[in-house]
Structure formats: C-alpha cells, structure tokens
Design a protein around this nucleic acid. Sequence first.
DNA 1: GCCGTTTTCGGCCCGACTGTTTTCAGTCG
Length: 579
Amino acid sequence: MSNRELAALFDELASLLKVADGNAQSFKARAYETAARTLDTLEPPAAEMSVTELIKLKGIGKSSASKIAEIVETGTMDRLVKLRAEFPATFLDLVRVPGLGPKTALMIRERLGIEDVGGLRAAIEGEQLRELPGLGAKTEEKLARALDRLGTSGKDRRTPILDAMAMASRIIDELTPMVEVEQIQYCGSLRRFRDTVADIDILVATTDPAPVTKRFSTLAFVTEVIGSGSTKTSVITQGGLQVDLRVVEPAQWGAAILYFTGSKAHNIRLRQLAIQQGRLLNEYALEESEGGRVVASETEEEIYEALGLPWIPPAVREDTGEIESGLDRSLPEFVRWEDLRGDLHVHTSMSGDGDHSLTRMLDAAVQRGLEYLAITDHAEDLAMNGVGQDEMLEQRGVIESIAADYPTLTILHGAELNIGRDGGVDYNSDFLSTFDWGVASVHSLFDLDVESQTTRVITAMQNPAVNVIGHLFGRRIGKRPGIELIDDAVIEAAALTGTAIEINSHLDRLDAPSEFLRKAMSNPEVLFVVSTDSHRTGELWQSRFGVTPAQRGWVTADRVANTWPVDRFVEWAANQRVP
DNA sequence: GCCGTTTTCGGCCCGACTGTTTTCAGTCG
C-alpha cells in the first residue's frame, strides 16, 4: 500500500464525512484531509512505520495513525466501509450538483426520500423542494439549470490546461484594451499550472468595476451568467467551462492575486501565519487585527515578506512543504524561464509535422536569445513523418554550411529517435554515433504492460546515442493517458546511465509530469532538460510553460542541463555519448 | 480529529453571492 493510495483513502473518508456531518467545513473532515496531504508528500512508506512513528508526523494523530495500521492490516478501514454503505456513489452524485451541498442533500433524503439525481429531477418537476424549509421556487429553478448542464460542467469536470489557457487568453484579450482595466491576470489553478482546471479565475484591478463586469458578462462566448455582484461575477462559456471574474482596487492587487491564485491549502497556511502574528489576511490586505492598519497589500512580494517568507512561485503553492522551507529560508532555487540557455528538442519542416524551415527556426532561436539549439527531426521509424539517413546527412551539411551565419548560436545536430517495442531505436549504431544529440521518445504501443514499458524505456536509456528521453509518459492531457512505468526503476536507470529526463513544454503534454519530477529530484544524480518540442517558430517561447511543471516538481536550475553555459553543456552532451 | 514559545481545552481561513430570511444559512472558492 503506497502513501498515495493511503492518502486517497483518507481523502475519500474526508469527503464522506462532509456529507455525513452535513457540513462541508467539518473539522474532522479537514483533519483527515490534512492527514491525506501529509501522507501524499511523505517520503518513507507509511505502511512500514509504527503507530508511534506515525503520530509524530504533523497532521497525523492517534486516530489517523491507528487507521493507517488498520488499512495496512486489513486493506481497508471499517469506518470507510460503513460510510460507503450509508452513502452510495449514486447519492454522492447529488452533492456534485453545483449549488447543492451536503446539508441540503441530507435534508431532501430525509424529508423526500431522494436517493439519487433521478429522484432530485423528479422532485423538482413535482415542485416538491419549495415545500421544504430554506428552499424555494428559485432554488428549484437554479438546480434544474444545474442538472441540465451537469456532465458538461458538474463540480468534478476538469478542463485540460491547453483549452483553459486558450479561453483565458481570449477573455484577457477582450478586456485588456478597456481603459478601466489597470491590471489583469488569470489566477487559480491555471496560474499554478495544474494539468487540468475546474474553472478559470480572472482578476482585474480597476477603480471603475461596472463597465468591466458588464463587458465580461456579455462576451460573445458567454452562455449563462450564474451570479454577479459588485466584486465577483461567474459565467459559463460555450463548451461549459466556468469563468469567475474578480474585481479589486489597484492598491489591493497583491492581496487579491495571492488569494485568487491559491491553492486553498496554501492560503490557509498563510492566514494561519498572519493570525500568529496578530494580523488578518484576506483578499484585500494583510492588516493588524487591532485597529486594522494595513501592513501590505499592493504586491505579493510585500505580503510574503511581511509574513516572513520569500516570494513563492505560483506553481509550488500547494502546501507541500513550501511554507516550512520558506520560513527557514531553505526554499530551493527553482528553475526559471530566464535560466534557460538552450533548447534541445526542435523540429523543422524536414520531418512531415514541422511547419517551418531550418533557417526560420534558427532565426527564431536567435531572436529568442538562445545560446544553443539541437535540431531533432523525427528519425525514420516514425511512420509518415520520419526521415532516412540521406536526408539527415543532407540537413547536417546545410547546418555546417550556414553555422557561420549564426555566431551567437551553437547548433547541435540531433534526431528524435523512436523507442521500439524492445527499447531499440532507429538507424544503426555507427550512424547514430555521428549525431551530436539524441532524444528518444515513445510514439507507439502505448498499452503495453507496465513491466514491458519500463524495460523498453530503460533499454533506450542504456543506449549511448540517447542523451534524453522525450515526453517520458507520452500522455496528452485530457486526451490520452500516459504509458505505465515503474517510476523508481526509471529514475534509478536515469541516474545510472546519466540519461536526462525531458520536461516537455507543450501545454497538452507537460511531460514528465510534476509528481514524477519531484520523485526524480530526490535522486541527486538525475538530470533534466526543459525542451519546447517546437514544430514552428512561435513555439520556441513556450518553454515559459515548461518551467512550471518543473517548478511544481521542485526542480532546481542546477539540475536542468540546458541552463548550463554552452561549453559545459556541449562537453557534457558529448561525454554522455561515449559508449 | 489535531494541535499548543499564550493553550491539554477551545479553537480550527476568510469572504462573496444567493435565496431565504427578518438577521442568516448554505454553497462556493
């Protein structure tokens, strides 16, 4: 039983307790959520720890410790089994209806015998809800609308970051030109760069909110306004994605963006810190509890500083240790976009899926300010887009002939190799050895079993022609799950062979994912590269995206090979390729 | 259920919006 599996059981227990207590703020439930987070971020396996050791962990007390022991012994916990029986999944679906919380769900079950969403629908049609205390015709209407769009925008629906970012950009493009808008920024889990988001949060600083709110509510792609007040407006857009707009005074920007970025757990910790200091932190300011004098509000940096913390990048604000590290000034130097000097996964129009020519890509790389670049078109085993030896040699000739035109750019000639069923790659080893750089990626056979996939990837790592494994899991967020791998085995092989792990910047990949990266960071021998996998010039800038999963995985700049100066990098890359 | 450089008991982040209320409960983030 892994820590993650244990955490999942505690999370389930917490959400069931919220329903059982009829209270989403249930303190017991919150305590179990804390325990779940502790387990999720714990390094040693909790299953192998004694109850005495477990109790020493922050957030785990007597009850949780004995529950962990019970799970290890029996595979589950009695309390959870009983709650599952009392609240079957069909009943929990009720609580997933937006606008219907645990209190109301319990009441309609008791008073009307409603056990599932079908029952709720019937009760609404029969106008039965309005007979109950605290509910009326408007509530029926609201829930009816919520049921209509359930499935497209239920509480559990999550949107891939690629789609969410596109929608956020559209909205920001529409509002930015307004004279009333002084600052605007997407916040929430989008700013924290989670793989998927439940909704989009947009923050605007203005002294004149009304026109901004009006414009937002009437955007062409808004299909429904769920709620609109003086500072907060929520809408549903075409496709069912919810967008919340929050409007604040310019002087409150820092407090607001901090609050609106979250995560919730991070915010709670910050507010607890504030309380300890005799202060209050809300979305408007950090202020003295007595008298209300504002201590800081305009920028995130000021507020963090006043709380005794360095500025923490949004991507790591998950309360998984960043507060503790910040307080004792041991927060790592997370890799930043400005640290990147090279890009090591770039296609040209030579392989079928690239849009722009070699020279256009090189020109763009110079414009982007890169010091080194690896051209890595698809090798021949990739159906449709791969190219053979002759074309590769021709490309190499062109690179050599025009290299002098790019005095500030060191160009490496590489290829994106395909990892075959047994871990072999394209071409023969003699030809492979003539490249400067090799990315090897899985492009096929995504459903092999976990042992086969692990062996396959490790075999590729052992090949001297392979400097880095590209998009390790091959996932497409929201479209295709990644391959299954034994993480620890892959990490150990990466350390042993010196093969780097790519952090692919494409918004629909962000691969390897941050959870894997954080695990890999715990082995000091493992190196990474942040690559764009560009297929056209504009994509050379999307490493802005790639550094965020790296930060979420607590990856530091010194462990990212393409932050190194060109001489160090080229020497390392060449040494890697010595058989 | 968990926790304690005020505390072993009494707190637990904080506020907006809605709909139902006569001052607040429920839901949401």
